[in-house]
């Protein structure tokens, strides 16, 4: 029975099926070797990447693509660091030109301290990108109404924050996340705030379609081990969600039968 449930369980973003429900970021690592090892251990099929100026003065500097082959792993270009629609659009158009990337992560920030998204600019940008043929995975606040608005304007996935980016504060608003999950017809991927495996399990048990993790892995003492831990957490949380948890009771209920008690 359980196998059947698992077989039917597919994770689809923009009509593409993925095996892993864990997406990992590639920032904050000590070096590219560590990044590559952690990505491998995570089992992720999609990694987020940022678009930045080439260092024209240092010609020997290693580049990310030498360590993570974009033919073997899907790059999800992001707009991290963009505070308005114009910059975000420019960044993603450049990313597309680099090699045809159409699936992108939109992130328009509104506040330097909390890194909360500017949802007005985010919605505006989503509309333009969808029109230009992009498949847009959108980092957003956990407001169900705004999440619905993003879906209405054509977002390929809704990515609400669990808590501020890089904070590791975990799932702070289960109710809002649940409401977003219940109403959404596109995948809901918790992005930002995951601090450790249990946070990812909670997100997946709520019914999220996936989670995106960067800092929890990169800032742990053993990134490769933490990457593997998060891989297991996401699988574990998903399986619990599919299995359906038991009802909670206020009193004890013996697991051993009382019949035949000596």
């Amino acid at each position: 029975m359980g196998d059947k449930v698992l077989k039917k369980d597919t994770f689809k973003i923009a009509n593409k099926i993925f095996k892993s429900r864990l997406i990992v970021g590639t920032g904050k690592y000590k070096n590219f070797k560590e990044t590559a090892a952690a990505v491998k251990a995570s089992g992720a099929e999609i990694v987020t990447v940022a678009v930045r100026r080439v260092n024209i003065l240092d010609k020997k500097k290693p580049v990310l693509m030498d360590y993570l082959d974009p033919k073997k792993i899907i790059y999800l270009p992001n707009t991290a660091g963009c505070f308005n629609s114009e910059d975000a659009l420019r960044t993603l158009r450049l990313a597309r030109e680099m090699g045809g990337w159409k699936m992108v992560k939109l992130e328009v920030l509104g506040d330097k301290k909390t890194l909360f998204p500017n949802m007005i600019e985010t919605i505006k940008s989503t509309k333009v990108l969808v029109k230009e043929g992009f498949k847009v995975l959108v980092y957003c606040s956990d407001d169900p109404l705004l999440a619905k608005k993003l879906e209405d304007v054509g977002a390929s996935a809704i990515m609400p924050l669990a808590s501020p980016i890089g904070s590791g504060l975990g799932i702070q608003n289960k109710v809002n996340l649940s409401l977003i999950i219940k109403q959404s017809k596109v995948p809901v991927i918790v992005d930002a705030g995951i601090g450790t495996a249990s946070d990812a399990v909670i997100a997946m048990e709520l019914g999220c379609d996936g989670v995106l993790v960067n800092s929890a892995i990169a800032k742990s003492k053993e990134p490769t081990l933490m990457a593997n831990s998060l891989k297991n957490a996401v699988i574990s949380g998903r399986q619990s969600f599919l299995a359906g948890r038991m009802e909670k009771e206020y009193f004890g209920s013996a697991s051993s039968p009382t019949k035949g008690l000596i």
Binding site: T26, T35, V49, L64, L94, M98, I165, L212
Partner: peptide, 10 residues
């Protein structure tokens, strides 16, 4: 002129 590439990011 701006020449950009991909770097690590979250």
């Amino acid at each position: 002129i701006e020449i950009v590439h991909f770097i690590g990011g979250g």
